[in-house]
Design a protein around this nucleic acid. Structure first.
Length: 423
RNA sequence: AGUGGAGUGGCCGAGCGGCUUAAGGCGCACGCUUGGAAAGCGUGUUGAGGUGCAAAUCUCACGGGGGUUCGAAUCCCUUCUCCACUACCA
C-alpha cells in the first residue's frame, strides 16, 4: 500500500497518477487525509489519558508502600472511573484505524510516469519485438491437437483426476517440462539469482504482504480447514521471505529465483482463451525476485527484462514486449512489462512473462526495510518477473516448431536437458 | 494427533503483580589508556506511532490476539511456534 506520508505530501500527484488507471481517487484520497487527521486527534486524546493513568498508578504503588492505604484506595476509585472514558476512546481509535487501513488497501499503486493511460490491453504499448514469425506448412495444427496425437499432454485424464485446467504431462511432454524448468533455473543462477524452493501454501499474512489479500481472495484456492492459500505465483512465498526484516544496506540487492507450480482459480474464463495450454488452473513457472535499494529499482527492472529477453531469444521464439497501460496494470505494480510469444498456429500472442517494479507498495505492507549504519530504516523496493511461465512457452514451441511430418523440433538449448531433439 | 514443558533485546539469560526505568553477561560502536594492539575502564547500543520550530517528551511493543487489575514480562483465556514423550507416517 501507499505510504500515508507520501499521500499527504503528494496529494495531487497521487490523484493525477491514479487517473491513468481510470480511477478517480479524489474522494478516496480525501477520505484518507480526513481520517488521518481524525486518527491523530484520537491518538492524542488516548495517549494523554494513558499517560495520566500510568502516572496515577505509579503514585498508588507508592502510597501502598508507605502504608497510606486509605488514600491509595481513594485514588484507585478515581482512576477506575477515568478508565471507562479511556476504553471508549480506545475503541473509537481502533475503529478509525481499521477504517483507515481498509481505505489504504483499496488504493492501488501510483503508475510510473512512463505508464501509458488506457483501459484495456489494446492500449498497452509495444516497446520491443524480436524474431521472425515462421510460416507454417499447409495443415499445421494448434498445439492441443499435436499434444494429443503425440500423447504428451492428456487433458481428459486431468479432468477425471481433478477437473478442467489440470493436465497430465506424459512421457516426452513431462520431460520437456522438466527440461524447461532446469534450463530456466540454470539461466537464473547464471544471472546471480539464488535458488529457493518455497512452500506452496501461504498464510493470510503472506497474502496481505504481497497484495493478493484482501482484494484478490477469489483468485486463489483457499484451504479453509487450515486457512491457507495455494500460491498463485512463487512471488508470494519468495517475497515474503523478507517480510518483517530490516536488512543492512550492504546486503542489497537480494536476488532469488525459484520454480513452483502455481494455482489459479481463473473464475469466469472460458472459450478459446482457455483452450489447451493457454490458461490452466495449475501450471509451472520459474520466478525471479529482487529486493533492492530504491535508487536502483528501475535499473534492476531493466536488468530483469534483459534476462527474460535472453531466455526467449535462446528458445528462438518470436516475441514482443509491452509496457502495460494503466488499466491493465496490476494493483500493486508501478510499472510492468509483459512478454508475449507468438503462437503461430493459433495466430495469436501469448503472455509468458510479466516483469514488475512494485517500488514500496509491497514493502510497506511487508515491513521490508533496510538500514544504513545508524540511519532510520527505510522501505526497500521489490520487483519480480516470470522467467518463465511454462505452458504457453510449450504451446508456442510445439506450434512453431512442428515440421512437415508433424514432429516437434526441440530448440538446441533444451536438447541437453531433454536428451532428445524431436518429439 | 495426544500429553507435558518452553517462548524475554543482535545473541545468551534473570525476573513470575508495583524501587523493572527489563538485572547480569556476550557481541557491536565510540571514547580513554597505548609506540601500536590486547586487556582494562567509561559511554552508547530496538522498532513503530504521536506532540513540538527545536531541545525534548509521551504512547505502544517481553511469540500473536484478547481479558482481569489502579498497575501485567509476571495472573487468566485463546492462538502460533519450538522441545520432550506417546501415536501415526514418506
Amino acid at each position: 500500500m501507499l505510504q500515508v506520508k507520501h499521500i499527504l505530501e503528494n496529494k495531487e500527484q497521487v490523484i493525477e497518477g491514479l487517473k491513468k488507471r481510470n480511477l478517480d481517487a479524489e474522494t478516496l484520497v480525501q477520505q484518507i487525509i480526513d481520517l488521518d487527521l481524525e486518527r491523530k486527534t484520537s491518538i492524542v486524546k488516548v495517549e494523554d489519558l494513558r499517560a495520566e493513568g500510568n502516572k496515577k498508578s505509579k503514585e498508588i504503588g507508592g502510597l501502598f508502600k508507605e502504608g497510606r492505604i486509605e488514600e491509595a484506595n481513594a485514588a484507585k476509585l478515581e482512576v477506575q472511573k477515568a478508565k471507562t472514558e479511556q476504553k471508549n476512546l480506545e475503541e473509537e481509535l481502533n475503529n478509525i484505524e481499521e477504517k483507515f487501513r481498509n481505505l489504504l488497501y483499496q488504493i492501488p499503486n501510483v503508475p510510473h510516469t512512463t505508464v501509458p493511460s488506457g483501459s484495456t490491453e489494446e492500449d498497452n504499448e509495444e516497446v520491443y519485438s524480436e524474431g521472425i514469425i515462421p510460416i507454417l506448412h499447409e495443415g499445421a495444427k494448434p498445439h492441443w491437437e499435436i499434444v494429443k496425437k503425440k500423447n504428451i499432454v492428456d487433458f481428459e485424464t486431468g479432468v477425471k483426476i481433478t477437473g478442467a485446467g489440470f493436465p497430465v504431462y506424459k512421457g516426452k511432454g513431462a520431460r520437456l517440462q522438466r527440461a524447461l524448468i532446469n534450463f530456466f533455473l540454470d539461466e537464473a543462477e547464471k544471472s546471480g539469482y539464488a535458488e529457493v524452493i518455497p512452500p506452496l501454501l501461504i498464510n493470510e499474512a503472506s497474502g496481505i504482504g504481497t497484495g493478493q489479500l484482501p482484494d484478490k481472495e477469489g483468485q486463489m484456492y483457499h484451504v479453509t480447514g487450515d486457512n491457507l492459500y495455494l500460491i498463485p505465483t512463487a512471488e508470494v512465498p519468495i517475497t515474503n521471505i523478507y517480510r518483517d526484516l530490516i536488512l543492512n544496506e550492504n546486503e542489497l540487492p537480494k536476488k532469488n529465483c525459484g520454480y513452483t507450480p502455481c494455482f489459479r482459480r481463473e473464475a469466469g474464463s472460458y472459450g478459446k482463451e482457455v483452450r489447451g495450454l493457454n490458461r490452466l488452473h495449475q501450471f509451472d513457472k520459474v520466478e525471479i525476485v529482487q529486493v533492492v535499494h530504491p535508487d536502483e529499482s528501475y535499473q534492476v527492472l531493466n536488468d530483469m527484462v534483459e534476462h527474460v529477453k535472453e531466455l526467449v531469444r535462446k528458445l528462438k521464439l518470436p516475441f514482443r514486449i509491452l509496457r502495460l497501460c494503466g488499466g491493465d496494470l496490476g494493483l500493486t505494480s508501478a510499472l510492468t512489462f509483459d512478454f508475449e510469444v507468438y503462437s503461430t498456429a493459433q495466430e495469436r500472442w501469448l503472455e509468458v512473462s510479466s516483469v514488475s517494479n512494485f517500488e514500496t507498495y509491497q514493502s510497506n505492507r511487508l515491513k521490508l526495510r533496510f538500514k544504513k549504519d545508524k540511519e532510520k530504516p527505510q522501505l526497500a523496493h521489490t520487483l519480480n518477473g516470470s522467467a518463465l511461465a511454462l505452458p504457453r512457452i510449450m504451446a508456442a514451441l510445439i506450434e512453431n516448431n512442428q515440421d512437415i511430418n508433424g514432429d516437434i523440433c526441440i530448440p538446441e538449448v533444451l536438447q541437453k536437458y531433454t536428451g532428445f531433439s524431436k518429439i
